[in-house]
Write a protein that binds this DNA or RNA. Sequence first.
RNA 1: CUGGAUGUGGCGCAGUUGGUAGCGCACCUGGUUAGGGACCAGGAGGUCGAAGGUUCAAGUCCUUUCAUCCAGACCA
Length: 492
Amino acid sequence: MAKEITPRQENYSQWYNDIVVKADLAEQSAVRGCMVIKPYGYAIWEKMQSVLDKAFKETGVQNAYFPLFIPKSFFSREAEHVAGVAKECAVVTHHRLMNNPDGKGVVVDPDAKLEEELIVRPTSETIIWSVDKNWIKSWRDLPILCNQWCNVVRWEMRTRPFLRTAEFLWQEGHTAHATAEEAEAKAKQMVEVYAKFARETMALPVIVGHKSPNERFAGALDTLTIEAMMQDGKALQAGTSHFLGQNFAKSFDVQFADKDGGLQYVWATSWGVSTRLMGALIMAHSDDNGLVLPPVLAPIQVVMVPIYKTDEERSAVLGQFETIKKALEAKGISVKIDDRDTLRPGFKFAEWEVKGVPVRVALGARDLAAGTVEVARRDTLEKETVSLEGVDAFIEDILAKVQKNIYDKALAFRNSHIRKCDDWEEFKTEIQKGGFLLCHWDGTTETEQAIKDETKATIRCIPVDSCVCEEEGRDIYSGKPSSRRVVFAIAY
RNA sequence: CUGGAUGUGGCGCAGUUGGUAGCGCACCUGGUUAGGGACCAGGAGGUCGAAGGUUCAAGUCCUUUCAUCCAGACCA
C-alpha cells in the first residue's frame, strides 16, 4: 500500500510546480518569498482554523489580538529569545511617503523617521508579555489562556511555498500559570490537541515528542513537537508547544501575589501551528494526479459532472443532480455541480482530481436510462456505478472510507520507512534514503551537532509515545551509553 | 553574503557563424464534438529584464546593473 518514493518527489519544488500550482492553492507573490493563497487554498485553511479553534476553546482558551508592530526596545528584554528568533525581521523606520522632488513616483519622507523603530512581529511573545503583566496581579487572575490568529513576518533568506514563506498565517497560543506543573500540563495538553487534529482531521500520522535542547525554541525549557513524514521520506515539524518556565516572566517582570501573600513569577507556555500545515497536507497525501484532500478538510466534498449532448439531456441530468445535492446537503456534505457548458467531462474529471475533491459523481444519458450514477473516489481512483436509490448514503459512507484510507495509507507509508539503526556507517547511507531512523543518542549537543554536520540529519524528537524506544544501547556516533532511542531524519 | 544557472507574448520555451522574432499551451471567432485533459479553420497578442557600448545592422558580441531560481548559513 505504501507509495514508493518517485524521482519527481525527491525535489519538493519540482513537485510543487507539478502539483500544487495546478491545484490552484497558491501562487508566488511579487513580494519576495510571500504567497498569494487562492480562494480554494484559503478555504482549506479556514476549515483547519475552525476545527482547531473549537478544540482550543474546549480547553478554556480564548482568542485575542495584539498589535502587528512591536517597539524595538521590547526585543532587548529577552536576550536568549532574541538571539534565537528575532534576527531576520522586517523593521519599520519611517511613517510617511512624499512625492519624489527629483522626478516621478514617491520616496520615503526623511522627516518622517520614527523615534524608535518598530518590528513587524516575527512572533508575539514580547508584546503579549508586555501587555499580560498588567493583567496579572493576583493568583486569582491566573491562568490566562489566550490565543491569536494572525500573520507574522520572518525575513528568511530562503523561502519555500507553504513550508517557509516570508509572511505566513498562524495561531499562537500564550498562557500564564501559577505553577510549573500546571504550565507543563498545558503544554502537553496542547501538543495532544495538535496530534489529534493532525491524525483525525488532516489524516496525518504524527509522532509526539520532545525536542532536543539544541532544537528547542529559544527561551523554552521544553519544546514538544508533532513530527510528520512526507512522501519523500523527509520529516516535517508540523506544530510545537513550548513550556517556557519562568524565563519570559522574569524578563518582562510578570509577577503575582500568591495565596500566602508572596510574590512569584508566572509559569508560561506558548504553542502554534501555521499554514505550513497546508504544505504537510500536500506533501503527505498528493499523488501524480494532484492533490488528495481528506474529506473533513475538503472545501468541496462531492463534485458532480454532467455528461450530455443535447439541451434536453443537460437539463435532465442537472435536475437529477439537484435532487442528489439536496439529499447530500441535508447530511452536511458540501456539493459542487460543475455545470460549465464549455468544458468536456474528461477535462473536468482531471481538473477536480488535481484539486483533490474526494468524491466525484458523473451522470449521463446512459445512467438516466438505467437509473444509476457513477461514483468515483479520489484516493483510490476507483469508479463504481450504483443505483440512484440511496446514493446519498452511499456517498456519505465513501467519504468516511476515504478519510480513513488516506490516514491508513500515510501511516503504512510512515511505518515502512521507520527503522532502527545501530551502525554509524549504515546510518550515513540509510539516512540519505529518507525516512526516520531510531537510534541511540548520548544526550549531548556535541554529538547531535556532529551528526548534523556530517549528514544534515537532526534529532526530530525524543518520542513520548508510538514506538518502543526505551531500551539500553550505545550512541550511534559516540558509542557512549544511552537509555533510549530518538528519531533522526532529514527535515524540511 | 558565497557558489551555479536563468531572464524573449498570460504560462512554458526555441532562436545557428549578428541580418529586422518564432513554437506549444492558454485566449478570441466559427463549426464539428462530448462516459478520462477534443478536433479543424481563422484571429489577436512581444520596443527580447534594464542602461550603456561595438556595428551599416544586436534577442545574439562587450560593460554595468536589476530580478528570479537552485545549493549553503537561518527557520514554523
